[in-house]
């Protein structure tokens, strides 16, 4: 539901790094979305598209990478990835599990088309 606000934050970062006269060269923003970040990738993609439509940044899209949440079970030692926040070990059912990663929402980089390429 708040993907629009997240998309607006991403666009703001793009605007900070890619000046208006280079806007049309912005091709892709690489974004990492943790599996436990509570963000729907399709919705984020849709919102970003809606925000840039008709602006100088219109040619820019999101390249979304999912980041798994790695878990260690304290009871049976199993290591697994959680894709939803159900904190139970798939092996023994224990909820004594430690997670690392998978909760962040990060902008990795912005890909720009070179000016020479843009002319060809």
């Amino acid at each position: 539901m708040h993907e629009l606000s997240v998309a607006a934050n991403i666009l703001e970062t793009v605007q900070q790094h890619v000046p208006l006269d280079r806007a049309s060269a912005a091709r892709a923003v690489r974004v990492q979305v943790g599996d436990l970040a509570g963000i729907i990738a399709d919705s984020l993609d849709f919102c970003f598209g809606a925000l840039v439509a008709g602006t100088p940044y219109d040619g820019c899209h999101l390249a979304i990478e999912r980041v798994p949440a790695r878990c260690d079970c304290a009871d049976c030692g199993r290591i697994f990835n959680l894709t939803s926040p159900m904190f139970a070990c798939p092996g023994c059912g224990s909820s004594a599990i430690a997670t690392s990663g998978g909760t962040d929402l990060r902008i990795v980089d912005i890909e720009l088309e070179d000016e020479i390429e843009a002319r060809t």
Binding site: I10, I107, I110, L112, D114
Partner: peptide
């Protein structure tokens, strides 16, 4: 293609 490295949280401003 050239790449601008950002490496920051999307909601960094809020944080």
């Amino acid at each position: 293609m050239s790449v601008i490295t950002i490496e920051r949280k999307v909601l960094e401003k809020n944080d």
